[in-house]
């Protein structure tokens, strides 16, 4: 037992991959005839290019609108005839729609939410994966069922709860960002916990056992063995929660949407911005959306390798 790196993929699959690689290496010596290429690969490229144009088009269209100084929806072209940064200027100089505050709020809400969600879900998943105790199955079942009742359905109740709590605890009042964060964290245990448990299950129990013999406490096993091993997965779940919180519309608009414009998030603020005057705001809207999308997309690309394993966790195992 020397290496601690746990690959979420089973060993067999790894070997297989290697074998495949070797095969490819062997075959590379024989160049493919044009006819075989046409038959086996050409259509694959065609499919990929078609799908990519479909996938990329809205993004490119948005980018083109962002850099289009004419800001004219009805005559917009994919390559803007008068490119420039006018729309960005308009966006940042409009005091009625404080874009900078929206971005700031979104980033605060999304990062605090995803961090807390991860902390809460990971520790619960650790207990559910590693300990056998009375009521464990009930906990798992409860989490599964509760998760099926989306907070969205209980939105009126959540509003009333916050109205009551806010009377006594100022930071839980409606209109307050921290209230929204607590609501998000409280409603998210299900999905993430279930996913993480699947991952913790793939970390061999023997590691815990031998650490225990060496005198490690359960907290040390958790923080110093299990968590470092699943770090990529934690990153992916953080990313997915981050995107989720950035994207949340209804709860956000009900809890913090009715007050000051500068308290909104990008999602809610931009919705109001574009709905107020579609044609006029199209260019600045596109500029704002582009700026909000690019960092997320970049982060996603960066973590791409882990995203696949993260998504299929708990279902592909065994």
């Amino acid at each position: 037992m020397t290496t601690l790196a746990v690959d979420p993929q089973p060993k067999a699959a790894k070997k297989e991959k290697k074998a495949k690689k070797d095969k490819v290496a062997l075959q590379k010596h024989k160049p493919m005839s044009a006819r075989t290429w046409l038959r086996t690969l050409a259509w694959r490229h065609a499919v990929a290019i078609f799908a990519i144009s479909f996938a990329l088009f809205p993004f490119l269209w948005m980018a083109s609108a962002a850099f289009n100084n004419d800001n004219d929806v009805s005559n917009q072209q994919l390559i803007p005839p008068h490119p420039g940064f006018n729309n960005f200027q308009i966006l940042f100089s409009n005091p009625n729609y404080p874009y900078t505050s929206w971005i700031k709020n979104s980033v605060i809400i999304a990062s605090v939410t995803s961090f807390l969600q991860l902390a809460v879900a990971a520790s619960a998943a650790y207990a559910l994966s590693r300990f056998r105790y009375k009521g464990r199955k009930t906990t798992l079942m409860t989490i599964l069922v509760v998760q099926m009742f989306p907070q969205l359905l209980a939105i009126a109740s959540i509003y009333l709860i916050l109205a009551d709590l806010g009377k006594s605890i100022p930071f839980m009042h409606i209109g307050n960002i921290s209230a929204l964060i607590v609501v998000f964290v409280g409603g998210s245990l299900g999905v993430n916990c279930w996913m993480l448990k699947g991952f913790f299950d793939t970390v061999p129990q023997e590691l815990d056992e031998s650490a225990k013999i060496d005198g490690a406490s359960h907290a040390q096993i958790y923080f110093q063995i299990i968590l470092p091993l699943v770090r990529p997965v934690l990153a992916v779940i953080f990313l997915l929660s981050f995107i989720g919180a950035m994207n949340e519309y209804v709860l956000t608009s009900i809890i913090i949407g009715n007050g000051n414009q500068s308290h909104l998030t990008v999602a809610v603020g931009m919705q109001g911005f574009i709905s107020s005057a579609y044609q006029k705001n199209w260019g600045p809207f596109a500029a704002g959306s582009l700026m909000a999308s690019v960092p997320v997309i970049a982060l996603f690309m960066f973590l791409q390798r882990y995203v696949v394993t993260g998504l299929t966790a708990g279902s592909t195992k065994g």
Binding site: V120, S123, A124, F131, V146, L153, A154, I161, V182, L189
Partner: peptide, 25 residues
């Protein structure tokens, strides 16, 4: 209560913002 040390925070939050709203609904 070792397992509870890991589960309690999540479950307590879940009770207030998921279970209770569902029952209240």
């Amino acid at each position: 209560f070792i397992p509870a040390k890991y589960i309690a925070p999540g479950v307590l939050l879940l009770m207030l913002f998921s279970v209770y709203p569902s029952i209240y609904t």
